[in-house]
Write a protein that binds this DNA or RNA. Structure first.
Lengths: 216, 216
DNA sequence: AAAATATCGCTATTGACATACCGATATAAA
DNA sequence: TTTATATCGGTATGTCAATAGCGATATTTT
């Protein structure tokens, strides 16, 4: 974009923009698959039902120069957004807690798109340890530190019951994890430098149920 | 808050506040279970790791008058927040798409807390239709309109593959659904009056993977 | 070759939310 | 009874992102 961004941080993207990038990326992939060589922000906005100015600003943030009347070069834009998301290199993750939700995530095929692969799964329950679920063997919690360090894994997926949330998070942090994808309802406390991204279904449902009940 | 809000809508709560309400509610429930009769915003903020002013403002929004040096009356505050979320009355929902994610949601016990019960499940695949999963019988899509109308169901949970997202959403809307909890990656287009709440795992992961890859 | 037009890219305005500050008041302590 | 203090409730400020507007420019058309 400008000198400052280039020097200070590789990318100082607004958080909302980052959140929208996967949506743009899917759209761009489809357009490339359809044979497009250039991506116009107006077309993307139209397809996604977004404001055209917003789409233009977001796409411009990727740092790829676009051309008037043509749009952005499709391949370069695709590469830039993929890189901004860190999806250009495969990321290994560990999953902790093989309950129903952990099970579902292990079986979810869509992560390939985000270059995310679950390298190992852990559980505290002896009944589950040793089983192979969706091709991933479930290991005892005791193996976690060693395996995380050996495979140099930076991302942990936390799908344990609420009361086990903080203890398991602590174990992940101690093992050297850099980011936690938190599916519990617990607000985790972690040291600086470790990033937590919460996926609280209750929070999401709150907006919906409030709106439905309020407008009757 | 002011006259306008009182007249136009019962509560015009900021969206971020609504999203935080489930978190407060869990905390309040715990404190009541621990025997507390009054809830101080400072204590809540401390427990949840939030800014004390933010917590105070959010709790004040519930409309329950608090008392200096005591806090808010616990039961009343609990009731007010529960009501604001529309969780004071049981809400029936239908689930469309019994894949791995749909399966997990059917087995998720936590929805009771939010007074949400999945009354019926639907799938297009003949192999799945007829089976009973976590106590819910899977029905053919053809039964959807009739059942939704008969049970007067207002909420639909959409856990189908992406390419089936929009068609299934259309069916839900046609059946009279008021809100859709959308677990697909598709941006649904629905008529005014129907609310869509998206749970896009890719968007959530984007923030995490961007941060991890950017800070190495 | 000239004119028309679509799209990019920058700047300014608006709006919403979080944060900071300060006064009011009920409880507790002296 | 008086003083101290914790907590509520409102107002003001700051920050960030969405929206709007406008100029620049490359492509297309005539």
């Amino acid at each position: 974009m400008n000198e400052k961004n280039q020097l200070a941080q590789p990318f100082a993207l607004p958080l909302p923009t980052i959140r929208r990038y996967p949506v743009y990326l899917r759209c761009i992939n489809e357009m490339i698959a359809a044979g497009e060589t250039h991506i116009s922000s107006a077309v993307v906005a139209e397809k996604l039902g977004l404001d055209s100015v917003l789409a233009r600003k977001d796409l411009a943030m990727a740092g790829v120069p676009g051309k008037p009347r043509r749009g952005y070069p499709a391949r370069e834009l695709q590469a830039a957004i993929t890189a901004a998301l860190g999806w250009d290199n495969s990321t290994d993750a560990v999953l902790v807690g093989v309950g129903s939700l952990g099970n579902a995530l292990l079986g979810y095929r869509g992560f390939e798109e985000q270059s995310l692969s679950i390298a190992a799964a852990f559980d505290a329950s002896p009944e589950i340890v040793g089983k192979t679920i969706h091709g991933v063997k479930v290991r005892p919690m005791a193996d976690l530190p060693r395996l995380v360090k050996r495979l140099n894994i930076r991302l942990g997926i936390l799908t344990v019951p609420n009361d086990a949330g903080q203890p398991c998070a602590d174990k992940l942090v101690a093992a050297g994890i850099r980011g936690i994808w938190n599916f519990t309802s617990v607000r985790l406390s972690v040291p600086d430098g470790v990033i937590v991204q919460n996926v609280d279904l209750a929070q999401s449902l709150a907006v919906l149920s409030h709106a439905i009940s309020a407008k009757r």
